[in-house]
Amino acid sequence: MPITVWGLAIAQALLASGNILLVSVSALIGQQLAEQAWQITLPVACQFAGLIAATLPAAHLMQRLGRKAGFVLGNLFGLLGAWVALQGLLSTSLGLFAAGTFLTGIAIGVGQQYRFAALEACDSGQHARAISLVMAGGILAAVIGPNLAVWSQGWHDDSAYAGAFYGLLGLYVVALLLILLLPLPAAIPLQPGERVRSYGELFRQPLLLAAVASGMIGYGIMVLLMTATPLAMDGHHHDFPATAMVIQWHVLGMFVPSFFTGRLIRRFGTRNVILWGCGALLLSVAVNLSGTGFWHYWWGLLWLGVGWNFTFIGATHLLTFSYRPAEKARVQGINEFLVFSAAALGSLFAGQGVVLLGWSGLNLFAVPWILLVLMLIWRLNTREPVAA
Rank of each mutant, 00 (worst) to 15 (best):
T4H: 11
V5Y: 15
A9D: 11
Q12T: 10
A13I: 03
A16N: 15
A16E: 14
S17M: 15
N19Q: 14
V23E: 12
V23W: 14
S26I: 07
S26G: 07
Q36H: 14
Q36C: 04
Q36S: 15
Q39A: 12
G50K: 04
A53N: 01
L56P: 03
A59V: 06
Q63H: 11
G70Y: 11
F77R: 01
L79F: 07
G81C: 03
G95L: 02
A98P: 01
G111Q: 11
Q113V: 00
Q113G: 00
L119P: 02
C122G: 02
I131H: 06
I144Q: 07
N147F: 14
L148D: 02
V150W: 15
A162F: 15
G163C: 11
F165V: 01
L178G: 06
I179G: 13
L184C: 12
Q191N: 04
E194F: 08
R197F: 10
S214F: 09
G215N: 08
M222R: 08
V223W: 15
L225R: 10
L225E: 05
M226K: 08
P230D: 01
A244L: 04
L252V: 11
G253A: 01
S258Y: 14
R263M: 05
I265Q: 09
R271L: 03
I274D: 12
L281N: 05
L283P: 13
S290K: 14
S290G: 09
G291I: 04
F294T: 00
Y297D: 02
W298R: 04
G300H: 10
G300R: 08
G305P: 10
G307M: 07
G307L: 10
I313F: 08
F321H: 11
E327I: 06
R330I: 04
R330T: 06
E336C: 00
E336F: 02
G346Y: 09
F349R: 04
A350E: 02
V354G: 05
L357Y: 09
G358E: 03
L364W: 13
F365Q: 00
L372S: 02
V373F: 09
L374K: 09
L376Q: 09
W378P: 00
R379D: 02
P385R: 09
P385F: 15
V386R: 11
